[in-house]
Design a protein around this nucleic acid. Sequence first.
RNA 1: CGGGGCGUAGCUCAGUCUGGUUAGAGCGCCUGGUUUGGGACCAGGAGGUCGCAAGUUCGAAUCUUGUCGCCCCGACCA
Length: 586
Amino acid sequence: MKWSAFLIPTTKEVPKDATVPSHQLMIRAGLIRQLAAGVYSYLPLGYRTLRKVEQIVREEMNRAGAIELHMPVMHPLELWQQTGRVAAMGDVLLRLHGPEGDWRSQTVLGPTHEEPITEIARAYLNSYKLLPVNLYQIQVKFRGEARPKSGVLRTREFLMKDAYSFHRDKESLDEGYQKMYDAYCRIFSRCGLPYIAVEAESGPIGGDASHEFMVLTEAGEDVVAITENGDYAANTERAGCAPLPQDNTPMGAVAEVHTPRQRTIDEVCAFLKTKPSQMIKTLVYSHPVLKDSKKPPMPPVVVLVRGDHEVNENKLNRIAGGKLELANEATITALTGAAVGFAGPHALKGTHRLIIDQAVATMRNAATGACKTDYHVTGINPGRDFPLTGEHVTVTDVRNVTDGDLSPTGSGSPIRLKKAIEIGHVFKLGTKYSDALKATFLDNDGKPKSLIMGCYGIGLNRIMAAAIESHHDEGGILWPMSIAPFEVLIVALDPRETAVMDVAQKLHDDLEAAGVDVLFDDRDERAGFKFKDADLIGVPLRITVGRKSLADGFVELKRRDSQDVQKLDPAEASRAAFEFVSQSRK
RNA sequence: CGGGGCGUAGCUCAGUCUGGUUAGAGCGCCUGGUUUGGGACCAGGAGGUCGCAAGUUCGAAUCUUGUCGCCCCGACCA
């Protein structure tokens, strides 16, 4: 391909709206163009990479025994109502709008495809003899993201590989899950990504039922907890840690302190001259009140965490057996008898459930709210001043891990928190969707059973961005060979010299004939200009053909990721380039 | 959805506070010339309903109101 006949709109200037490296470079290298918030076109060069990623995914999915199909983007609203996800997803679910009763009002754009795939499974997977089966597609997804950001890392329209497996029993699901896990490792390795697999929020089945594949980068939105010795890695939504040692300081007396207008942990600490780690944060949650519910309201839930810790609401919801929300002022006042900001566990009034983080249970002589406006107490001791056992008391892990907590494996290795991009997710779904949509099969005992499902997603656009986040320098992108838009770039420095152009053209033709993706920069531009463009678009291998070195019979071979230049005669250069490409394709 | 910022040429921005010729610069683009190994130079040129709407005014990119869009922080994220 000749550069002059292709479209690669590179720019020198950094676009003002782009803040993360991958976004800046994708625009500067002419890979993408934004059309609206979270909506991007893939320009020819960018689309070549996206297609290569797609092809790697497809090959590895096929190798793992999955079968490709293609499902619609437009789904009937009713299907989503049947699984309860119209309410669950809220504004994230994009809906078409039309007059009342019009088909448009009954149509949504698919944010994912559990519903339609389960509908297919219900129709056709009616016997255990057809199981297990894994169906996948590479398809555009639509989500009404409240805030798209960081270029293609978080968008309203994106390309996803989504696979769904169907099984007759849990053992088969475990096998299918492991196959996908292994396939994902191969996919991300082949794409040249420095990925890690971490335990993720596991949903309905629990245990090891979910893993996320992450690429560590400051541009990421997720935070993962990784131990220094590598024996544990989990998303902070889920991560746990080793219990803290019991503080054995002798118990002192409880004392009330006047703390006018001191509400926040920091204010109170400054006032009492103590540290957040010596305080107990007392948070009041309540169960959401459902409209039309005839049931009596559930009592509030009081959660205790150390002053320097945060409640992990995923963990809390799981312990509480339902989604909780922070209580309103009236509930808090009724429970504490004080203004908001002065709650403490020792003097609560009325029925409530107490969920105590295990770190709090180890504390001695802590400070907390006095349940009296403008007062706090010191010398509070768990077990003495408030219960650690009892019917409505739970001591467990309800907090986010912090940097420096120790590995839950007991190895003693400290946890570090790092930002990451989620590029893939494997998930054991169980029967959530097959139950909701009544997708059953007949087992060999002649009885209908719900299909047991797994689902497995990969964000293709994110792979592209993550690859750039992981492989770039001041000058531009350093593509891994496997997903580079072109594998070799031939730069002709003196395009008006026929000798130069003839050699460059022959190199191009030979490599192309050998099946190499080769781009030929034949533009009539100055050398510096072309080198800058070459570095920017990040083709892994460059062959420079210039008048000067050609006079000595040489062309120059250079890797994008190295400063070394090899002077070779054209035929050798061609051979060396071909070998290098073949070896590094994987 | 809360907080902040920004909408002027394909891109990056000045001009707006303090209303007043024909709305500017750099990059990019076109023509000609000189250059030619790490984003050259000279000359000439094309390109803008100043996001949109209403209002104030003799006069609006500039003031007022409304509205739409985009970015950042936060909330949210099956």
